[in-house]
Computed example of a mutant assay.
Amino acid sequence: MSLTSSPAPAARPPNTATPSRAYDGTSPFPPDGPAPARDGGDRLYLAVTAVIVVVPFVAVGLAGWLLWGSFIHVTDIVLALVLYTVTGLGVTVGFHRGLTHGGYRAVRPVRVALAVAGSMAFQGDVIGWVATHRRHHAFTDRPGDPHSPYRYGTHLRGQLRGLLHAHVGWLFRNDRTSADRYAPDLLADPDIRAVARAFPLLCLFTLALPFAAGWAIGGTWIYGLTALLWAGLVRIALLHHVTWSVNSLCHLIGERPFRTRRHDRATNLWPLALLSFGESWHNLHHADPTCARHGVDRGQIDLSAAVIRLLERLGWAYDVRWPTPDRLAARRT
């Protein structure tokens, strides 16, 4: 999974080259070459990325300080849970399993609604998100992968540096992914293009909504501010780090019951299963990316798959690619 900001003015060419096939699986990735001089557009990209990444994280510290003084309301908790669920499923069910991998098809209103919900997660516009994630699958854990924890090699120092890179450092590289190459189907979809263009407004809306709801329910602007903090910024920060943990931890720690492609080290990490709505059953996902269910073994809770099943029963999703015993058996280690 990935997080990108709105497309920046061309500061460096989008990544379209095919990386070398000579990677041995343990060495640091070859250098990308000299970085071009930064212009105003590049600096704007980094500034926007810093705001998206840092402000919610700082809000967590502020929230901790406020919590110490019991400055939190039931309204804040309920709004945070509701918005975390809606925006998180927008990413997992909408951006990821639907638009990126085609694990199912949805009727137009549901397709658009999920794209809007995912955009409200503050993880970048839908087309950029999908393009980056498809590129991740094309070059998983080898040169070309935008956020592999193996970028700096497999020795301890390289792994620690790579973990930081895979979790958040890659966001600041401005290593843009070509939507023309990796998401031409979405570029051809006028509904999805409209949602992508609306991303800045949806970012404002995802913060204004808890503020307005908190004020309306609590009756004072204080309730609005605490709702903005907890159901806005803290909620965004938590979902950010859960998503980034799938990029980082779920390629370093956990079990690998299914075979993946050469160099692909995707793992299952059960502690993240509930918070990630089933995305941390990452090993099966990389073994069979179009499968609509990631948690396929006994006890593996996959809330995203449950939502897709509900949509299917309502007639709002179809052509769902559910796992079959034969496909799973063929991929077992």
Rank of each mutant, 00 (worst) to 15 (best):
H286I: 11
P190W: 01
V126C: 02
T87F: 09
T85P: 07
P36W: 03
V93A: 10
G315Q: 02
R298G: 03
L79D: 15
P289N: 01
V126S: 02
G315C: 08
L284K: 04
D24H: 00
P19E: 10
H137M: 12
D24S: 00
L201P: 06
P109H: 04
G224N: 11
F95Y: 09
P289L: 10
R12W: 03
S2D: 01
L187M: 08
G144K: 14
L233F: 13
L328Q: 05
L187A: 00
L284M: 05
L81R: 14
H167C: 07
I236P: 09
D288F: 06
S20Q: 15
T4Q: 10
D189R: 06
W65Y: 09
G33Q: 09
P149W: 05
A306C: 08
P19S: 14
Y104G: 03
H101S: 06
P325Y: 08
R327T: 05
Y318I: 02
A80I: 14
V246A: 06
D24I: 06
L314N: 10
V246I: 10
C291A: 14
Q159H: 09
G153P: 08
G118N: 09
G162V: 01
F211Q: 05
V246W: 05
L164I: 11
L156H: 08
I72H: 10
R38P: 00
L252A: 01
P34H: 05
L314R: 10
D185N: 04
N15C: 15
S27C: 12
D189N: 12
S248Q: 06
A17G: 14
P109E: 04
I301V: 15
T87I: 05
P14C: 09
W281N: 14
H286Q: 11
L204C: 12
A35Y: 04
V74E: 14
L204E: 08
R105P: 03
G61F: 00
F172Y: 01
G153K: 13
R262G: 01
R108N: 01
